[in-house]
């Protein structure tokens, strides 16, 4: 087991923000979480490139935990592509760059019928450094912490035909932010089981228009098990089950609380990962909401799926 010291280090990011019980999400199609959260630090001089595609759909309104009828918006969806480039500077320090682009972020209206409003564009970039704080090679425990900055590609909100898009259709926050991520990994070599705890906290500054997207916290527990482990077969498989909690804090407009912002959600995410001759990993996962609680009335999540392609590039691996 890990020591008390490392256990406290793991808890620290969670303990710092106990008041963040409500979240940012006003009728929002949301913003995807990066696709490489199940990776620890990389070995020195190892480069990995991860690309992912995510489709997300919201088509119902919740008030608190209750499903309610009506609403002007029939559904909202987004299609997002992202990439994460990670490089092992040392065996304990990994640098990461996360980039993403909303192919579309669209609302379909019930009233007025037939109307759509569509945003697209670059999300904030995330540059971070991930450091392995604890590693026990015998008992297979690892704990890493990553600190990052969110960088906007533009400080101005996006407009379509000279009409500014609503905040929930903007592709980025149009301002700077900070991200802290922590990773606790435990492996059992004999059984092929892997346990993983991931935490991510994000803060956003106030943008030029006076809007501040609320902070968010993601906590995810993963359990994975290898399915196929033969040296003659070129493909190995891993089945992963993820339970994820997303908490979004209130957003502010000119320092006034955005009324319909803030949420607590739990998702069950089954995931299958296929490794092709240890060179390319392909993952497919589906987010199924199992609990959703929204502050006031908000457009709630229905389903999302993500496809992740990951390629490690290291000396000796082509």
């Amino acid at each position: 087991m890990c020591s008390n010291k490392s256990f406290l280090l793991f808890l620290l990011p969670l303990l710092l923000f106990p008041g963040m019980a409500q979240g940012q999400c006003f009728s929002s199609a949301g913003t995807p979480v990066g696709g490489s959260e199940n990776m620890g630090v990389l070995q020195k001089n190892t480069l990995t490139i991860t690309a992912f595609y995510r489709h997300h759909l919201s088509d119902r309104y919740f008030e608190g935990r209750e499903l309610i009828q009506g609403g002007a918006i029939k559904n909202a969806r987004y299609n997002y592509v992202g990439s994460i480039i990670a490089y092992g500077i040392t065996n304990r320090l990994t640098a990461e760059a996360e980039l993403g682009y909303f192919i579309d972020k669209t609302k379909y209206y019930r009233v007025p019928e037939g109307y759509t409003l569509r945003g697209r564009g670059l999300n904030n970039a995330l540059l971070s450094g991930k450091y392995q704080l604890y590693y026990d090679p015998v008992k297979k425990w690892e704990y890493s912490l990553a600190l990052g900055v969110k960088l906007p590609f533009s400080l101005d909100g996006r407009r379509i035909d000279d009409v500014r898009l609503p905040y929930d259709l903007q592709p980025s926050t149009s301002t700077f932010g900070a991200v802290v991520q922590s990773y606790l990994i435990h492996q059992k070599s004999f059984t092929g089981m892997r346990y993983f705890l991931y935490n991510r906290i994000e803060w956003n500054a106030t943008n030029r228009e006076g809007y501040r997207y609320g902070p968010s916290m993601t906590n995810a527990v993963y359990v994975s098990r290898h399915l196929i482990r033969t040296s003659s077969w070129p493909v190995s498989g891993t089945l992963i089950l993820q339970l994820r909690n997303e908490i979004r804090g209130k957003s502010f407009i000119h320092e006034e609380i955005e009324p319909s912002s803030g949420s607590v959600k739990f998702f069950l995410t089954p995931q299958i990962n296929l490794a092709f001759v240890e060179k390319v990993n392909l993952s497919f996962m589906v987010d199924i909401p199992v609990y959703q609680h929204y502050r006031n009335i908000q457009l709630a999540d229905r389903v999302a799926f993500t496809i992740v392609l990951n390629k490690p590039i290291a000396p000796g691996i082509r």
Partner: peptide, 28 residues
């Protein structure tokens, strides 16, 4: 040229006339 903005709610259309949609966050 006509530039439209609103802090809460959605604006559909462009030019001299738009449609304001009162989404749930617009109470007030």
């Amino acid at each position: 040229q006509y530039f439209w903005t609103v802090e809460k709610g959605d604006l559909l259309g462009s030019g001299t006339e738009v449609t304001y949609v009162a989404t749930p966050c617009t109470i007030g």
